[in-house]
Simulated assay, not measured.
Amino acid sequence: MARDFWSAELRRVAERLRQSGQRVTRQRLAVFTALARLGGHRTAEEIYDVVRAQHPDVNLSTVYRNLDLGVELGLVTQTDLGGGVRRFELVRAERHHHLVCQQCGAVFELEDDLLEPLRAALRERYGFVARMDHFAIFGTCSACWSRSRAAGTRAPA
């Protein structure tokens, strides 16, 4: 089942590459395959380690170029979940975002439909059509907030 899912995802990636006039190369497929198999939000270096194991001739700059192309084509999302490190994820059918706790580093998924009122307000008030594909909102999780309140300290707002 999981193998069929990733095969379908990689066929979708290959089709999108072709539609945009890009070649479907061995290196490109290796990068997107590694990203799909790793799942989640991965650094270019993590992806590179997987690709290099099977394709020693592929270098880190090739991984970055293909990830950047994936972002440009809407196949891959790029997010900074803290620490200034770009993380990449293969785009899923449903958009999602993240809440990142600056105290403990926990990351929680945020459903896209919660952002629709913001999109509507931006369109109405500013005439701006926001592209909110994937991003992180930083703050304090409930567990850290509770701990700080119990300790009598103030958690950052």
Rank of each mutant, 00 (worst) to 15 (best):
Q54C: 02
R52K: 13
L81K: 06
C104N: 01
A143G: 07
S7C: 01
I137C: 14
Q19T: 04
A34L: 04
D133E: 15
L90F: 10
T79W: 00
E72N: 08
L99G: 13
L90D: 03
V107I: 15
L114P: 00
R3Q: 05
Q27V: 10
Q54I: 02
R125A: 12
L60E: 13
V58N: 05
A93C: 00
V13I: 14
S148A: 15
A36T: 11
L38D: 13
A2V: 11
E109W: 06
F88M: 01
A130Q: 03
D133G: 12
T140H: 09
A53F: 07
E111H: 14
E89I: 05
L10A: 04
N66F: 03
T25H: 05
G74F: 01
G21L: 03
F135R: 09
E46S: 08
A106F: 09
E45M: 00
L60N: 06
T153F: 15
L67C: 03
L99Q: 09
R147I: 07
A2Y: 13
R16K: 15
E109Y: 05
F88S: 02
A143E: 14
D49H: 09
A155C: 12
L115W: 14
V71Q: 01
L73A: 05
M1D: 07
N59W: 11
A150R: 13
V129C: 00
I137E: 15
A8C: 07
A53H: 11
D133S: 14
R37P: 01
V71K: 02
Y48I: 05
V51T: 07
N59R: 11
V85K: 11
Q102N: 09
R23Q: 14
R92K: 13
S146C: 08
A151F: 12
T140G: 04
V24I: 06
G139L: 09
D4V: 03
F5W: 10
Y64V: 01
D112L: 08
F135A: 09
L38K: 12
P56W: 08
T43N: 01
A121P: 00
V91M: 06
A130G: 02
T33W: 12
S142C: 10
H134Y: 11
R125F: 06
W6M: 08
N66W: 02
G105V: 04
L35F: 05
H96K: 15
S61E: 13
V58R: 03
G84A: 03
W145C: 05
M132G: 02
A44I: 02
H96A: 12
R87M: 06
L73T: 02
V58C: 08
L10H: 04
A136H: 05
R123I: 09
R12A: 15
G70Q: 00
V63C: 02
C141G: 04
H41A: 09
F5S: 10
E116S: 14
E94V: 15
Y48W: 14
A120C: 00
R16V: 10
A143I: 15
